[in-house]
């Protein structure tokens, strides 16, 4: 396998959200020195989005620079390979979505299977760098009473998760309202969002 083949393979892994951090850094190095590889990344990104029915990102947006910045300024990743994958996926996701106002997720970025048991904790998401909003841009809305279709595993999976999301909305919104009321300028609005609920105590520590 030639170095060019390896670069192309690494690029595919990156596009699929499967690149480890070291691989990600290596392909970014190659991209910075190889205009043809850089162009290939852009083309693949556009083709993938078209296949997924998404709006195409502006072709002159160079994501690689932002990805590198995020990697260079962020903490070093844990040795846990799962954690590394989560970092890479998050970096790409945050930079691409942040820059492009994309609300519908890309099926090319696999969900990070990072949880192994109930409970646990939430931890800071490395690389999720905020970027300047471009509020005038059009985005694909997750419209009212509609499902944001996640097509990564087909229509049936999307249907299952639409039902799960709707069920969890009805089951859990009461608890969420109690917490959201603490921050909303009009606290009662959080309760009005839930049909006829009995307010619950916020989640206690």
């Amino acid at each position: 396998m030639t170095a060019e083949d390896r670069d192309r393979e690494a690029l595919s892994a990156l596009m699929d959200g499967e690149a480890q951090e070291l691989e990600l850094r290596r392909v970014l190095d190659s991209i910075s020195s190889d205009p043809s590889l850089r162009e290939r990344w852009r083309r693949q990104q556009q083709v993938r989005e078209r296949l997924q029915g998404q709006r195409t990102h502006a072709p002159d947006v160079d994501v690689s620079i932002r990805v590198r910045e995020v990697l260079d300024t962020g903490r070093s990743a844990s040795r846990n390979p799962i954690w590394s994958m989560a970092v890479a996926a998050s970096v790409t996701l945050a930079v691409v979505m942040g820059g492009q106002q994309l609300l519908i997720p890309s099926s090319g970025i696999a969900p990070a299977p990072v949880v192994s048991e109930l409970g646990g904790a939430v931890v800071p998401v490395l690389g999720a760098q905020p970027v300047q909003a471009s509020l005038g841009a059009r985005s694909l809305p997750v419209s009212n009473r509609q499902t944001a279709g996640i097509q990564s595993a087909g229509q049936s999976v999307a249907a299952v998760y639409e039902r799960l999301a709707r069920d969890r909305y009805h089951r859990l919104n009461g608890r969420h309202a109690a917490s959201a009321a603490q921050s909303h300028p009009a606290p009662y609005i959080s309760y009005v969002r839930v049909p006829e609920i009995k307010p619950e105590a916020p989640v206690s520590e």
Binding site: P111, S116, N144, A148, V157, Y161, L164, A165
Partner: peptide, 27 residues
Amino acid sequence: APVGEGAIIEGATLTYTRGVRSGSGGL
């Protein structure tokens, strides 16, 4: 339930669900 994700939005409230596999079965 398969591994996957989905979302609905009601007004300003977004509900996002994600199913993942784990050693103990799935979350």
